[in-house]
């Protein structure tokens, strides 16, 4: 178990800059999720921590030791890959014991460790099977078992759930989180799925274009996104982000809608953000026209048109309405987010 510090880490491939000086501090035992759209550099950062990519600038320390020039096997880490990377010609047992075999561990220790990991992950009955005889979820578990037996200081996960179907993904998500809580091993987890990030992380690091947009606890990011990118990225359905300006005693969107502002607001807000779930049905609200009604059972998503502006609301109530009908909605004024012309949050 260890802390991980990434200080001004840079990565350059030829003339392409992948990471422009990234800083991340990870506490001992923390579960950190690196999240962002594809190509944002999150996997590269993980691979740099693993030692699979050179570090072009800055430094990375694991447990207080700078590891820039330490080969992967001496960093005391374990990694789970997106396609699991199980050795196809070895049984589950051999796969899990491979690292110990290389370290020339005694047979009794190997046996004990493999059995312990198999018990934790429910793989006892599958130890003599080959990876091709396993289902996706089982392969995923073997990949984790291979990481567990090593008692590493840090677990690294590179999009481990993206090859699984939706139902299994939800199940494995909680299994990984539960496992991490039980072992209390520092974990760095890469995903492009913000739901995974929200549900699993102690700390989320949102990346975009080789830079960190914001880092913090999941709900802190949800409640106070630092900029437009984070506001749009975290949360599903995504936050309504409406460009416009403060005028006429409210916020006039470019589409012509007039939305109420929290009392005492002033300044040069250029974007009005309101999450769909923070809109309420209210008789004294802003009137719009229903475009689409999408009931999911637990809630109803309604796309409204106010002037030329489209806005999505998610309501606990069952909305009785058809496209073209009028509907009045009111933003929860304590949960309105305002962003300046540079895209950063106005406090």
């Amino acid at each position: 178990m260890a802390t991980v510090s990434v200080r001004q880490a840079k990565k350059v491939f030829g003339s392409t800059k992948i990471l422009h000086g990234v800083d991340v501090e990870i506490a001992d035992g923390e579960f950190v999720v690196l999240v962002g759209p594809s190509g944002c550099g999150k996997s590269t950062l993980l691979r740099m921590i693993a030692g699979l990519e050179n570090i072009s600038g800055g430094e990375i320390a694991i447990g207080g030791r700078v590891v820039n020039n330490v080969p992967p096997k001496d960093r005391d880490i374990a990694m789970v890959f997106q396609n699991y990377a199980l050795y196809p010609h070895m049984t589950v047992r051999e796969n899990m014991a491979f690292s110990m075999k290389l370290a020339k561990a005694p047979a009794s220790v190997m046996e004990e460790e493999v059995n312990r990991a198999a018990k934790i992950l429910g793989l006892d009955a599958l130890l003599d099977r080959y990876p091709r005889q396993l289902s996706g979820g089982q392969r995923q578990r073997v990949a984790m078992g291979r990481a567990i037996v090593r008692h590493p200081q840090v677990f690294l996960f590179d999009e481990p759930l993206s090859n699984l179907d939706a139902k299994l993904r939800v199940q494995m998500r909680s299994e990984i989180k539960e496992l991490q809580q039980r072992l209390a091993t520092t974990t760095i987890y890469v995903t492009h799925d913000q739901i995974e990030a929200m549900t699993m992380a102690d700390q989320i690091v949102v990346m975009n274009g080789g830079r960190i947009e914001q880092a913090g606890a999941p709900l802190a990011l949800y409640d106070r996104p630092a900029n437009l990118f984070v506001a749009g990225f975290i949360g599903s359905p995504a936050m309504n982000l409406l460009p416009g300006r403060i005028a006429d005693g409210g916020f006039r969107t470019d589409g012509g809608a007039l939305l109420p502002l929290p009392p005492g607001t002033s300044g040069n807000a250029a974007t009005y953000g309101i999450r769909p779930e923070h809109l309420m049905l209210a008789d004294d609200g802003v009137e719009g026209t229903i475009v689409i009604v999408e009931p999911t059972g637990s809630e109803t998503q309604v796309t409204l048109r106010i002037g030329e502006t489209q806005i999505i609301g998610a309501f606990r109530e069952r909305v009785q309405g058809r496209p073209g009908d009028p509907l009045r909605v009111m933003p929860d004024l304590s949960l309105v987010h305002l962003f300046g012309p540079d895209g950063n949050r106005l406090s």
């Binding site: 693993a50 030692g51 699979l52 080969p71 992967p72 096997k73 880490i77 374990a78 990694m79 890959f81 997106q82 396609n83 990377a85 050795y87 196809p88 491979f98 690292s99 290389l102 370290a103 291979r146 090593r150």
Partner: peptide
């Protein structure tokens, strides 16, 4: 990835 994994495995 198999080789990278083996590299990390030592």
């Amino acid at each position: 990835e198999l080789e990278e994994c083996a590299l990390i495995d030592g």
